[in-house]
């Protein structure tokens, strides 16, 4: 089954100023909604039909790329497999909630997990649902994994914190008429399609020689137009892309870290301001803007299901 969900388009207002008209730019370093890119995402979570009310073996050895189509090693990178049950959500509703980072704990009536290597002698890429547990409580598949139980989602994550670090997502669909008890999760490429608009956003002026302070205290919405919680922002990226334009980078949204010429990042802990001089990369700390190309500034949420930055803008060194 292929399912697709489109998040709402962000309609930016007051963004018709010329990109070359620095007078139309805002206050240096001030990040506001008008500076944020527009993002739409289509998450196409595959669904795997299995037998109902019985133990099922699930393998993930074929997951060689994650949801962002980044290469991965399923024997190393998958450190936790969580099975989540949504009693009142359809698959489509789960996809919408994932896309908009609007999934609440109360929507879940059950969560069990399996950590490869925690059973047996070492890392494995298969697990039986009967091996899953949480808070010391296992899963009785005859009662808890049934066609009538709701929507079941398998979440393959890097790291063992529940819900954080998703590399692959798939639905399991128990059906009473089916007899399939061994299933394999496929590759993650092609499941997440994104469409970003960087050009329409007002660029953010920052003095080329500093100071490099940025302030997002007045930012209220993310790239999808959803309200943000400032405590969700836990990382900043400032990156230079030699020879690239905002338009060319729009098509590489999921690879911004991979294609950067110079990449600087810094963790954030609930702040609403930062000094870019504190960001570091392979060449050391960020020291200023230079080069012919495009500088992008992003604010990220590593615990959100949607991998797109909360905030992304083009920096206009002045």
């Amino acid at each position: 089954m292929r399912l697709s969900t489109l998040a709402a388009l962000l309609v930016l207002s007051g963004c018709d100023a010329s990109k070359d008209d620095t007078a139309a730019l805002g206050e240096p370093g001030k990040l506001a909604d008008v500076n944020n890119y527009a993002f739409t995402g289509a998450l196409d979570v595959p669904s795997i039909v299995t037998a109902s009310a019985t133990n099922v073996s699930v393998c993930w050895d074929e997951v060689l790329h994650d949801l962002q189509c980044h290469a991965m090693d399923p024997t190393v990178d998958i450190e936790n497999v969580g099975l989540v049950r949504f009693p009142n959500y359809s698959q489509e509703e789960v996809e919408v909630a994932l896309s908009t980072n609007d999934l609440q704990q109360s929507a879940i009536s059950g969560y069990v997990e399996y950590q490869p290597g925690s059973v047996g002698d070492g890392p494995s890429t298969c697990a039986n649902l009967e091996d899953f547990s949480f808070f010391g409580t296992g899963i009785d598949v005859t009662e808890e994994y049934t066609e009538a139980g709701g929507t079941y989602m398998l979440l393959l994550t890097q790291g063992t914190t529940p819900g954080v670090g998703a590399r692959m997502i798939t639905f399991l669909e128990p059906r009473a008429a089916e007899t399939i008890t061994e299933v394999s999760i496929g590759d993650g490429c092609g499941l997440l399609a994104v469409d970003a608009d960087l050009e329409a956003a007002t660029r953010v002026p920052i003095p080329a020689a500093g100071p490099f302070t940025v302030d997002w205290s007045e930012l209220t919405i993310d790239g999808q137009g959803n309200p943000i919680a400032v405590e969700d922002i836990d990382g900043l990226m400032i990156a230079f892309y030699a020879g690239e334009t905002p338009a060319s980078l729009e098509t590489q949204l999921l690879d911004l870290e991979l294609v950067a010429t110079d990449l600087y990042t810094m963790p954030l802990t609930g702040a609403t301001t930062a000094d870019l001089a504190g960001a570091t990369g392979a060449s050391g700390a960020f020291t200023g803007f230079s080069g012919e190309g495009t500088w992008l500034l992003a604010l990220r949420c590593s615990t959100c299901y949607n991998p797109a930055p909360i905030f992304l803008t083009v920096v206009e060194p002045t």
Binding site: A229, V230, E231, D232, I233, L268, T269, G270, A271
Partner: peptide, 12 residues
């Protein structure tokens, strides 16, 4: 007052 640390969840 300052912002909460990112380790804490948003509450609806």
């Amino acid at each position: 007052t300052g912002a909460l640390p990112t380790e804490l969840p948003s509450l609806t």
